[in-house]
Amino acid sequence: MATDAALRRLLRLHRTEIAVAVDSAFPLLHALADHDVVPEDKFQETLHLKEKEGCPQAFHALLSWLLTQDSTAILDFWRVLFKDYNLERYGRLQPILDSFPKDVDLSQPRKGRKPPAVPKALVPPPRLPTKRKASEEARAAAPAALTPRGTASPGSQLKAKPPKKPESSAEQQRLPLGNGIQTMSASVQRAVAMSSGDVPGARGAVEGILIQQVFESGGSKKCIQVGGEFYTPSKFEDSGSGKNKARSSSGPKPLVRAKGAQGAAPGGGEARLGQQGSVPAPLALPSDPQLHQKNEDECAVCRDGGELICCDGCPRAFHLACLSPPLREIPSGTWRCSSCLQATVQEVQPRAEEPRPQEPPVETPLPPGLRSAGEEVRGPPGEPLAGMDTTLVYKHLPAPPSAAPLPGLDSSALHPLLCVGPEGQQNLAPGARCGVCGDGTDVLRCTHCAAAFHWRCHFPAGTSRPGTGLRCRSCSGDVTPAPVEGVLAPSPARLAPGPAKDDTASHEPALH
Rank of each mutant, 00 (worst) to 15 (best):
I18N: 00
D84L: 01
K102W: 15
T16I: 01
S217T: 08
R12I: 00
Y85N: 00
Q213V: 00
R247V: 12
G218W: 00
S241L: 12
A61N: 05
Q57N: 01
G251D: 13
Y85Q: 00
L49N: 00
R132M: 03
A144E: 06
Q189F: 01
V192M: 11
L175F: 12
S250T: 06
A19K: 08
R203I: 13
V22I: 15
L87W: 00
P101H: 12
L67Q: 00
S250L: 10
Q108P: 06
K165F: 13
F230R: 05
F100L: 02
A19I: 00
L175E: 01
G178P: 05
K120E: 09
V226A: 06
S153I: 10
R12F: 00
A271S: 11
F59G: 02
L128H: 08
G240W: 11
L255P: 10
K164T: 07
D23H: 14
Y90A: 03
Y231C: 05
L29D: 00
L75Q: 02
Q44K: 14
L28S: 00
T183W: 06
P129Y: 02
S195T: 14
G228R: 13
P266V: 09
G155E: 07
R9V: 02
S195P: 08
V104Y: 10
V188S: 04
S250N: 08
I211E: 00
P95Q: 15
L62T: 01
W78G: 03
V104I: 08
A121M: 13
K161E: 04
L49F: 03
R79D: 03
L66A: 05
T3K: 14
G150R: 02
V226G: 07
S187F: 01
P166C: 14
P125C: 09
F236A: 10
P163R: 06
R149H: 12
P200R: 10
V22K: 00
Q108Y: 13
D23K: 00
S187N: 06
P163K: 14
T46R: 04
R203H: 02
R92L: 01
K131S: 02
S250P: 01
A141L: 14
N244H: 04
V118D: 04
A265F: 15
L93E: 04
E167F: 15
K102T: 13
K131F: 02
E207I: 02
R203T: 06
P154Y: 15
D23G: 02
T16Y: 03
E207M: 00
T72F: 09
L75A: 03
K120I: 13
H30V: 00
V80F: 05
F230P: 03
P143Q: 14
K164M: 15
R190G: 05
S196L: 04
R139T: 06
L255N: 05
V192Y: 13
V22R: 05
E88V: 02
F82S: 04
P200H: 11
P101G: 03
A186S: 09
Q262P: 12
F77L: 01
R257E: 12
A141P: 09
L93G: 01
V214C: 10
N179R: 15
L87Y: 01
K235N: 04
S241I: 11
S24K: 15
I211A: 01
A191N: 02
G54A: 00
Q262G: 14
R8A: 00
R79C: 03
P126S: 02
L32Y: 03
F59D: 02
S64N: 03
L97T: 01
Q212R: 11
V226M: 06
P148V: 14
G112F: 10
A58D: 02
L128Y: 14
G155R: 10
G197L: 11
S99F: 05
D4Q: 00
E270T: 06
Q182N: 15
L32I: 00
V188H: 06
K161V: 11
